[in-house]
């Protein structure tokens, strides 16, 4: 079996990638993708830990947590995309730097 630490390095780098995306990207859709990457980092962790908890067995709690969180992240994305559509209709742009009404 592949060592657990490789999976942990993978999920941590996925997390850092998501934070990097949130910090540097200015497009609203890309910001949303950054959040999705963060959630996937956590999901990867759950799947890994479920497989490694007891060698030879798979713990069902990690899997149920992952499937629930995939569903919830879909719901969050739906609301977020609706808000993005509203923003596009009002401001005519998807650039976060153009949304300046709240900068004071």
């Amino acid at each position: 079996m592949i060592d657990l630490s490789y999976y942990l390095i993978f999920s941590l780098s996925l997390y850092i990638l998501g934070i990097y995306c949130l910090a540097t990207k200015r497009n609203l859709i890309r910001l949303l993708l950054g959040v999705e990457i963060l959630i996937n980092a956590a999901n990867t962790n759950f799947i890994t830990f479920a497989a490694y908890a007891n060698p030879g067995f798979v713990d069902s709690m990690g899997h149920s947590f992952t499937s629930v969180s995939i569903g919830l992240s879909g719901a969050v994305s739906a609301v977020a995309l609706a808000v993005v559509v509203l923003i596009y209709r009002r401001y005519g742009t998807l650039d976060a730097d153009e949304l300046k009404q709240l900068r004071d």
Binding site: F46, V79, A80, L102
Partner: peptide
């Protein structure tokens, strides 16, 4: 209000994902 909602949404969703990441370590 739309702009505030989006700002809140991104920060809060990133927060929930971070908490989920922490919970996954507890579970592990």
């Amino acid at each position: 209000s739309i702009e505030a909602s989006f700002k809140y949404l991104i920060m809060s969703a990133a927060g929930s994902a971070t908490a989920l990441f922490g919970i996954s370590f507890l579970y592990g």
